[in-house]
């Protein structure tokens, strides 16, 4: 057992992207039970008309409103009640409402996460659980990341490790998590670029690593989950967008955002689950002040009788 535990620990020091679109199921403290396969589609619309050029907040008449839409196929499988495998693959398309630049579209990054609840203790109305999440993402198509802000992604292969602590009193919960993402270097189409106050005569770009801190709190019951979310993304390195320049994928992109997440399982038909979310960027650096909305519909296969909550 200890050996098994150790191996899993090694393997979980890996994984998760901070890119557009996904993040719900690897970020929350909700587990899919053993032998359940939850899968479906998530649509997300994100847009901004102001952004931070370094620390300077501005708009850009030659971009107008920049929007990113995505449809992601997601699947979450309960290997055990305490170990879930989550995978996602989004199709993304972007658009600038003004100016002449063409939007981009295509398949973005495939991701896979393992979420493990390795500690779960309940006394009376209180329960506490500790999770670790390890994940991996990588572009599944050869899209160009060096066309910011209209690229469909940042192009790096990412490994994320996350620790999460969840406390529950009756149906009220509070969850905190911290994640670290290693990002691989990028190869761009250009032969040189100017970033972080110097020229780089190479088509390789160093992608600084990223941390994500998240705090969520709300209500969680058998059929309904409703949570408020605070999220902070910090990039550990990279330069600012210089005055009136275009962004570069390795810029120091930071963002603090607030949002809500709701999940509802239809009691009369527990195969169906509806998800809704919204998010707003409060503060940032080299990032758009985005507002995003998303909604999804998921179908749950109960691969064993026991795994169906209606059965219990």
């Amino acid at each position: 057992m200890t050996k098994y535990f150790f191996r899993i620990m090694i393997c979980l020091t890996a994984i998760i992207p901070c890119t557009k679109g996904h993040a719900q199921t690897d970020a929350d403290a909700i587990m899919t039970n053993k032998n359940q396969l939850c899968n479906g589609f998530l649509y997300n619309y994100s847009s901004w008309d102001h952004y931070w050029e370094g620390g300077l907040k501005r708009n850009n008449l030659n971009l107008g409103t920049v929007s990113t839409q995505s449809v992601m196929y997601m699947a979450n499988y309960g290997i055990t009640n305490n170990l879930n495998l989550i995978a996602g693959l989004p199709y993304v398309w972007t658009k600038a409402s003004d100016g002449t630049l063409a939007g981009m579209k295509g398949i973005q990054d495939i991701s896979a996460f393992l979420k493990w609840r390795f500690f779960n203790h309940k006394t009376g109305n209180n329960s506490i659980a500790v999770y670790t999440v390890g994940g991996f993402s990588t572009p599944l198509s050869n899209y160009t990341p060096d066309y910011q802000p209209l690229s469909i992604g940042l192009g790096s292969t990412n490994l994320t490790a996350k620790a999460m602590l969840d406390y529950r009193y009756k149906n009220f919960t509070i969850t905190g998590s911290a994640a670290y993402t290693w990002r691989s270097n990028l190869t761009i189409d250009r032969d040189a670029y100017y970033e972080d106050n110097q020229i780089h005569f190479t088509d390789k770009a160093e992608m600084p690593d990223v941390t994500n801190l998240q705090l969520r709190a709300g209500y969680r019951s058998k059929y309904l989950v409703a949570e408020g979310i605070l999220n902070q993304m910090t990039t550990h390195g990279g330069g600012d967008i210089t005055r009136n320049n275009m962004p570069f994928p390795s810029n120091r992109m930071n963002a603090t955002s607030a949002g809500v997440f709701v999940k509802y399982t239809i009691p009369a038909f527990t195969h169906l689950e509806l998800v809704g979310m919204a998010n707003y960027t409060l503060d940032g650096r080299n990032a758009g002040q985005s507002t995003s909305y998303g909604g999804g519909i998921f179908y749950i296969f109960y691969l064993s009788k026991k795994s169906n909550p209606a059965y219990k």
């Binding site: 020091t13 890996a14 292969t157 490994l159 290693w182 691989s184 780089h200 005569f201 390789k204 992608m207």
Partner: peptide
């Protein structure tokens, strides 16, 4: 994952010249 992790440690990019 562990291997990719190790690989990702040396990220320094040098100019061609």
């Amino acid at each position: 994952t562990t291997m990719s992790l190790l690989l990702s440690c040396s990220k320094t990019v040098n100019d061609r010249t």
